[in-house]
């Protein structure tokens, strides 16, 4: 009898310990999340970091060209090299345009004149999504929003790109 009692006690003890440990772990996991949620200073800024994409402004024509560059992205504890791409050209108002190539449907990479049937359009190979040269999605194709536009700036004649900004539904 006394033996049995002792067994129960030991099991209880273990139970308490494990529950305590679980709680401790949960707290450990939640703490950073809560901190991220309440403290804006700790949130990843991202914006404002403009990257030199290796393209001189004088080389930008009215024909969209693809530029690729890499940035180091810190995602919580995980740091990785991420390749970014953009389609860059000057429009008829002489403004530099830099579009994200990510299809607003489900995220494939679109190409300028990617389909012979549709010259002067961006084409998505996945479900034949299309966009006009100004990035607006062609009605009747799967995408429901225009291509995102990169923030851009020019320094010493070089093009710098920041974050892609989504445009509203069209």
């Amino acid at each position: 009898m006394s033996e049995k009692k002792q067994q129960v006690t030991r099991r209880q003890f273990l139970n308490y310990t494990l529950t305590g440990l679980g709680g401790f772990m949960a707290a450990g996991m939640l703490a950073p999340m809560v901190r991220m949620a309440i403290d804006p200073v700790l949130q990843e800024s991202g914006a404002g970091d403009m990257a030199n994409v290796g393209l001189a402004v004088e080389d930008i024509t009215n024909e969209p060209q693809r530029v690729d560059w890499t940035i180091t992205q810190v995602d919580g504890w995980y740091e990785s090299e991420v390749t970014k791409s953009a389609w860059v050209f000057v429009n008829e108002n002489d403004e530099i345009q830099a579009f994200s190539p990510i299809c607003t449907h489900l995220g494939c990479v679109v190409s300028w004149e990617g389909s012979e049937e549709y010259p002067d359009q961006f084409f998505c190979p996945c479900h034949n999504g299309r966009y006009y040269k100004d990035g607006t999605n062609v009605p009747g194709t799967p995408p429901t929003a225009p291509l995102s536009v990169y923030e851009h700036s020019v320094e010493n004649g070089m093009l710098y790109l920041g974050q892609p900004i989504p445009r509203g539904e069209a």
Partner: peptide, 8 residues
């Protein structure tokens, strides 16, 4: 490959 064709 995934990056290029992520939607399909």
């Amino acid at each position: 490959i995934e990056r290029d064709l992520a939607g399909r």
